[in-house]
Nucleic acid binder design. Structure first.
Lengths: 137, 137
DNA sequence: ATTTATAGGCACCAAAAGGAGAGCGTGGAA
DNA sequence: TTCCACGCTCTCCTTTTGGTGCCTATAAAT
C-alpha cells in the first residue's frame, strides 16, 4: 500500500492512464531523492549505532568517502533536520554530529531495506547469474 | 539495529576507529546503491499498485522519466530479479512488466520509507526554512 | 622554528547520469 | 500510399556527481 501516490489516478484502463500528481512528483524527487542516497543511508546508520561522532571519526568509519562528500552530505542532513552539528570553540576544532529525532525515525524507516538487502542478497546474485546466462545463451 | 555493518567494528574510542568491512562496503555500494534510486522506487511502487503494465503505461504513470531511463531501470530490475518481462509477439509490440516475489518484498521494505516521507514532509520543510534563516541571519 | 591535528573551503578535472531527438520494423487503418 | 502505434536502440549533448590536491587558522607539542 503505497501511501503518497494515489491522489490523481484511481483506475487504469488501456486508454485511461493519468500521470501522477505533479506536486507529489516534486516531493518524491526532492525528499526521497535527497534522502535515499548511499552516503546519507550510511551516515544515518553509523550515527544511529554510535550516537555522537566527530567529522574524522565518521570519515574513518565510512572508509571510502571523500571529505568533500562527507561535508556535503552532512550539510544536507543538517539542513533537512536529520542531524545536529555542535561546534566546540577549541583548537584544534571539534565538531560533533548526532541524529535528531527526525533522523532516528528515518533510520528506523530504512531498517526494513537493510534487512531486505541482507536477507535477499543471494537471491539477487542468483537472478543476476541467471540473467547473464540467458543473455549469453 | 542495522544488520549488516557490525562485523568489524565493535567498540569506538577516540583512538580506535575501524573502517567497515570492505566486503560489506561492496555489498552496500552494489545492492543498496542500485536498488535505492528514485526510478526503481517509483516503478516498484507503481507496479505494486497496478499489477501488470506495459512500457508506455509505466512511462505515463511516472510522468517525467525519459524512455532511456525507463528502459535502463527496467533492465536492471529484470536482471536483479525484481520484475518479469513478458514479450508478446504481436505488432505493434506488446511488452508487459510485473513484479516478482522478490520485487514485491522489496516494495514492502521500502514502504516504511514512503510512510516516513509522507509523515515527515512538513517537518523537513520547516527544518529547511529554519536552516535558511539561520544562514542568512 | 617547525610540525601536527582538526574541520573544513575552494578550484579544477574526470566520469557518470540523464535528457532530446532520430530511427526502426511492421501490420493495419485511413 | 502514407501514417501511426509500440517498444525500444543509438547518438549527441548537457548536467550532475564525485575525487584530488591545496589552502586556512591556531594552540600545543617537539
Amino acid at each position: 500500500m503505497p501511501p503518497v501516490l494515489h491522489l490523481a489516478n484511481d483506475r487504469l484502463s488501456e486508454a485511461n492512464v493519468a500521470p501522477v500528481d505533479p506536486r507529489v512528483e516534486a516531493l518524491v524527487h526532492d525528499l526521497i531523492g535527497r534522502v535515499a542516497d548511499k552516503w546519507t543511508m550510511l551516515i544515518l546508520e553509523i550515527l544511529e549505532e554510535k550516537g555522537e561522532l566527530r567529522f574524522t571519526q565518521l570519515s574513518k568509519l565510512i572508509g571510502t568517502i571523500s571529505q568533500k562528500m562527507l561535508t556535503q552530505t552532512l550539510r544536507h542532513m543538517e539542513r533537512d533536520g536529520l542531524v545536529t552539528r555542535t561546534v566546540h570553540a577549541v583548537v584544534p576544532p571539534k565538531v560533533e554530529y548526532r541524529l535528531t529525532e527526525l533522523g532516528r525515525s528515518l533510520g528506523a524507516a530504512f531498517c526494513g531495506v537493510w534487512i531486505w538487502a541482507e536477507q535477499n542478497l543471494s537471491q539477487v546474485q542468483e537472478a543476476r547469474d541467471a540473467f547473464e546466462q540467458s543473455v549469453k545463451g
